[in-house]
């Protein structure tokens, strides 16, 4: 297997606060990798940096306090460097972010949200993809003409995964999919993420819920204060007393 996605020495500073501190990780083609760590460890920042959002914030907010962002290091996808690409070009290469809590376009209908995902594909392909997404998430079909702002938390997460799938992504970056969901919905989401992987999509997901992440992923990273402090399969990580107690709280 080739090195599909490779993050090397990635650093992000908000003003002088170091949020990512020379972080490195990789994801192979077809893999489902998880990144677990506590609140504030830098998980969202990592995914945002990979999808170009941090660069976008840096460029757009230049000259304001929130624009004082330093971004260093390398993010390579299939051999091509992404770190200096604008977010929309990263997306068009097939790297799609499913943000924390879904962040649907709240005033659009569910179907319109999905259509935004396939804006750059032919109508015919977009229609096919819509069918596929509806088959995967029947609840979205049921709610297709409902305004997305009225969806529940689980539905929003499913909508954001569906929206990403519309664009035929190569790799999904899913940010804390299980956060705030009821156990039953969590289980169903778990299965759907499996299905997405089964469709051949490579996945990197972040989680605070260690068991949710470990049961899904074939390989895991543990992040703490902007650094990867451990890596391995679930068994390997759980076998390590220190990591289990200090970082995973199990």
């Amino acid at each position: 297997m080739s090195l599909y996605l490779e993050v090397k020495n990635l650093s992000v500073l908000y003003d002088r606060a170091i949020v990512l501190n020379g972080l490195s990780l990789h994801v192979n083609s077809g893999e489902l990798v998880s990144l677990v760590g506590p609140n504030g460890a830098g998980k969202s920042t990592l995914l945002n940096a990979m999808s170009g959002l941090i660069k976008w914030q840096h460029d757009t907010l230049k000259g304001t306090v929130s624009g004082k962002i330093t971004l260093n290091g390398s993010v390579k996808f299939d051999g091509a460097e992404l770190i200096n690409l604008p977010a929309h070009e990263i997306a068009r290469k097939g790297i799609i972010l499913c943000p924390e809590r879904g962040r649907p376009f709240r005033e659009m209908t569910v179907q319109e949200n999905l259509e935004v995902g396939a804006l750059f594909l032919d109508k015919k392909v977009a229609d096919d993809n819509l069918e596929k997404v509806y088959a995967l998430f029947p609840v979205l079909k049921k709610r297709s003409s409902q305004v997305a702002g009225t969806l529940s938390g689980g539905e929003r997460t499913m909508l954001s995964i569906g929206r990403s799938l519309m664009s035929e992504p190569k790799i999904l970056l899913i940010d804390e999919p299980s956060v705030g969901l009821a156990p039953l919905i969590k289980d169903s989401l778990f299965e759907r993420i499996r299905d997405v992987q089964g469709m051949g999509v490579t996945i990197l997901l972040t989680e605070q819920d260690v068991s949710f992440a470990f049961d899904l992923a074939s390989r895991n990273y543990v992040i703490s204060r902007g650094k990867i402090i451990a890596e391995g399969t679930s068994q390997e990580l759980l076998a390590n007393e220190l990591i289990r107690e200090t970082y995973l709280g199990l």
């Binding site: 999808s51 170009g52 959002l53 976008w56 914030q57 604008p86 977010a87 929309h88 990263i90 997306a91 068009r92 799609i96 972010l97 943000p99 962040r103 376009f105 709240r106 005033e107 659009m108 319109e112 259509e115 935004v116 995902g117 804006l119 750059f120 929206r163 664009s167």
Partner: peptide, 21 residues
């Protein structure tokens, strides 16, 4: 029009969905 509405509602997400804001 769809791009415009997407950017209007959430510039960041529009951006990461491939829209050139």
């Amino acid at each position: 029009g769809m791009s415009i509405r997407a950017v209007d509602q959430d510039r960041e997400i529009a951006n990461v969905m491939g829209i050139n804001v």
